[in-house]
Each structure stands twice: as C-alpha cells, then as structure tokens.
C-alpha cells in the first residue's frame, strides 16, 4: 500500500452560505486534473458537497481534507460543533434539524447523510456531543478488467 498523499486541506466556516461549497468545488477540480474516472468524481463531489454543507449548517467550523492513494480517494470532513446525539436517527432519510434559514435555501431535506452513504464505498462517522463530528468517506477506483 502506498502512502496516502494529502492534496488539499481546506477550512470550512460554519453558517457562511457565501463561501459554502467552495471546498467541494476545489476537490472536484483537483480530481479532474488528476484525470480520475468521471463517475467516481461525481460520487466524490456529491458526498463532499453534502458533508461540507453539514459543517456549514450544523457545526461551528471545520475542514475538508482530500487524500489519494493507490486504491482510491479519501475525503475527510471534520468539525467542531454540537455533534450528533443519535447517529442512527441522523442517518434516517428525512430526519433533519436544519434551521429555517437553511431550509429556505433548499437544504434540510434530511437526505444529506443518506446521499453520502449511497455515494461512498466506505463511510465512518465519529461524533461526540458538544465536541464535533468526523466523517471519513472512502471511494475506491473502478477496477479495470
């Protein structure tokens, strides 16, 4: 196994809807430059955008980290914030505690974490109430056979 290479580490501000989405956009452009399979880039982009928006909507601040290695792409979304008291409930389609402000912008469908689950090959979520949340999303390269 080759050493993972950190390509990007981007800060994300909670509650800032102007810069929100910039990290996911940079992740996408970086992967495009590497010439990675476009279906894989699509999955990474959707999952990263949802995870970034969760930091913006539900946490205080955090970061998005992009890593690549021989097997695939890993995106880490880590934040300081209120954490998730009941992870099973949070993973349920339709469950949301998003603010009215976020809802008015089209968020808060409670489909972010289910979307992330669907897009990733491996998903790990570590969360602690009043401390923060760490979401590790792994995507494996398609096997060329």
């Amino acid at each position: 196994m080759s050493q993972p290479r950190v390509l990007l580490e981007i800060p994300v501000e909670g509650n800032n809807f102007t810069t929100a989405g910039e990290a996911a956009s940079r992740v996408k452009r970086t992967l495009q430059k590497l010439g990675i399979d476009s279906a894989l880039i699509r999955r990474v982009s959707i999952a990263t955008y949802e995870a970034e928006m969760n930091i913006v909507i539900h946490a205080e601040y955090g970061k998005i980290v992009l890593q690549v290695d021989a097997g695939g792409v890993t995106v880490l979304a880590e934040d300081r914030g209120k954490g998730i008291p009941d992870l099973n409930q949070a993973m349920t389609a339709g469950f949301s505690t998003a603010s009215d402000r976020a809802r008015a912008m089209g968020f808060g469908a409670g489909m972010g974490l289910p979307n992330i689950k669907k897009c990733t090959d491996q998903l790990e979520i570590d969360t602690q109430v009043n401390v923060g949340t760490k979401v590790v999303m792994k995507f494996t390269y398609p096997t060329t056979s």
């Binding site: 809807f17 912008m105 968020f107 489909m111 979307n115 669907k118």
Partner: peptide, 22 residues
C-alpha cells in the same frame, strides 16, 4: 438541493424556484 444531487443523471436540466448561490 439534496434531491437534485441524488436523482439527476448526466445531461439533466434543472427546473427550480431556488435562486440562491448554492
């Protein structure tokens, strides 16, 4: 927004009432 991300495929056009930058 989550539905748009999850249901659209390639070459899709979006019809929406949302006009914010996101």
């Amino acid at each position: 927004i989550s539905d748009v991300l999850s249901f659209t495929k390639e070459r899709s056009l979006l019809l929406t009432g949302l006009t914010n930058p996101q």
